[in-house]
Design a protein around this nucleic acid. Structure first.
Lengths: 141, 141
DNA sequence: TTGACAAATAGGATCAAATCCTATTTACTA
DNA sequence: TAGTAAATAGGATTTGATCCTATTTGTCAA
């Protein structure tokens, strides 16, 4: 939690009971929850907390690198006709996805206990960041 | 296109003008489009084509491995409090995300021209497939 | 410690993506 | 070429995300 308070101060985010609770709830979870799930949990503690607050708070946190947004950003489902080995760079600003190829990275193999536990139908390296056009919008960490 | 017809027959999907057009449009695109974008393009050719058909068709294609769904599946935005190096396995059936750790994979480095072109703020290996509980639902490829 | 101000919240309204429903049409098989 | 199961159109519904505005609340400086 210390790092949480520190990061908030660093980015002059006010430390509100709601924000603290949102962070604690997410940290206690291992299911990579969405805003709605966290909202449901928090309603026990804050009967009036709004979903908008939870969602806005989570987005704010992710912008200043307190937490992370994982696969899926709430955006529409997107498709790829290319089934050959390739990897993706995802621009956080313009939302474009760039393909890149790297035969060395195609070779990566997850350790055998993963392969044993799950049926793996696809693997990909996913990079996040800012593309050439959006460099300037990179958040100051 | 041959492989397209072949895969359709293999899974007894009827080859309709709409399906052919959806596939052609996606294949011609390099922007990893969503259903709505493809729908807009197709309306020139098929003034009455419905968005539902486009969306349903794309999902059908992805189920039989004609195309792929990329980062984000149209599901709600999900969050992760863990900023340390780790990787994800995403179950296509139950939609759970499992963390896994692999120090060897943490070391992977995209080739330098990628690093030069983009500002990279995150990297992750994303595996897709079926978890232990959902093994049985693995689509027959 | 207090007062002022900018920032954050609640709650309802709006927007957009995805899915569902059903009548109609169509591709495939025998 | 006719029968049948599958696919489509189009509208309705659901749900996640965002917007708007009045009210509340942290924070900083005096």
């Amino acid at each position: 939690m210390d790092r949480f308070y520190q990061k908030c101060k660093q980015h002059s985010l006010k430390i509100t009971p709601q924000r603290t609770a949102v962070y604690k709830t997410l940290e206690a979870s291992s299911s990579h929850p969405c805003a709605d799930m966290i909202h449901k949990v928090l309603q026990k503690e804050f009967p009036n907390i709004s979903l908008d607050t939870v969602n806005r708070t989570l987005i704010t946190f992710s912008k200043v690198n307190i937490i992370d947004v994982v696969e899926g950003r709430g955006d529409p489902r997107r498709f790829d006709p290319n089934l050959d080995a390739h990897h993706h760079f995802h621009c956080l600003a313009c939302n474009k996805i760039f393909d890149f190829h790297d035969t060395a990275l195609d070779q990566i193999t997850p350790s055998s206990d993963i392969a044993k536990k799950f049926i793996i139908t696809g693997k990909k390296i996913v990079l996040k960041g800012y593309c050439d056009n959006c460099r300037s919008q990179a958040s100051t960490l």
